[in-house]
């Protein structure tokens, strides 16, 4: 099976804390790969090194034949990597539909385009694409709502729409269902499953909700204190003593 993302020897130190300790990861193309681990294990930090938010002290992150380390955030996104953040990162004072049209425009027009004359009203294709994605996520009745006024779960779904509308090759999801109701969580699982199956999109999902993890993941990596301690198929994860120790034993 082809490898979509290859992480090799990534280290990151914050002062006295070794947040990432020689992390290695192989993510298969077209699969959903879950990263789990206790709070503070370094999961979000690892994603930060993928998207240019943090520069690791050493190591490489190869995607599509290119090393993502050292590239700028907008370049990484244009290569085809989109992320849903753990704390919602949205355009708070713009409307929901605008929040989704912006990444759609970025996908179509690239890093910069002086498109200052055509009215937004006439960008019907972009608008339709945004509406379609929002419909998939059950948000079609909130198009004109100001993004900041939405619930936390809805902000998550909005961010997912922002990622999906770009038709990325790799979608990074940092706790996408946190703050969602059970029903919305289940709906989100369905949507992600459907997209994974129909588009062959590669996804990395960080989750604490094991229901979500085991519904979606085809492979799971367990991260504890900055190191991948286990990488295996879901059915082998639950009974693994190392995993139980990482969760129950805590720091030692």
């Amino acid at each position: 099976m082809a490898v979509a993302l290859e992480v090799k020897g990534v280290n990151k130190r914050f002062g006295g804390l070794q947040a990432l300790n020689d992390v290695n990861l192989l993510v298969d193309e077209g699969r959903i790969h879950a990263i789990i681990g206790p709070n503070g294990a370094g999961k979000s930090t690892l994603l930060n090194t993928f998207i240019g938010r943090l520069k690791p002290d050493s190591g490489s992150v190869m995607f599509d034949g290119k090393n993502l380390i050292g590239k700028l955030p907008h370049q990484i996104n244009q290569i085809g990597v989109s992320r849903v953040f753990q704390t919602p990162e949205i355009f708070a004072d713009l409307s929901v539909i605008e929040n989704v049209m912006i990444p759609a425009l970025a996908h179509r027009d690239g890093i910069f385009e002086l498109n200052a004359w055509k009215p937004m009203r006439k960008e019907t294709n972009i608008r339709q694409k945004a509406i379609d994605v929002l419909e998939d996520l059950g948000m079609e009745d909130k198009l004109e709502m100001t993004a900041s006024s939405m619930s936390r779960g809805d902000k998550r779904r909005l961010e997912m729409a922002m990622g999906l509308v770009q038709e990325p090759k790799l979608l990074l999801l940092d706790e996408p269902t946190a703050g969602m109701s059970r029903a919305d969580t289940n709906n989100t699982i369905e949507v992600l499953k459907h997209i994974g199956d129909s588009r062959g999109l590669t996804m990395i999902i960080i989750e604490h909700d094991m229901h979500v993890v085991f519904s979606l993941a085809q492979k799971i990596s367990v991260l504890a204190q900055g190191t991948v301690i286990v990488e295996d198929a879901p059915e082998n994860i639950k009974g693994n003593p190392k995993v139980q120790e990482a969760y129950l034993g805590g720091a030692h």
């Binding site: 989109s82 990162e89 713009l94 200052a116 004359w117």
Partner: peptide, 22 residues
Amino acid sequence: SPFGMMLKAVKSNNERLSYTGI
């Protein structure tokens, strides 16, 4: 215009815009 909307996005969340490929 789309350009105008990008400018509004700069004001709203400049950092997010760069993770959006802009």
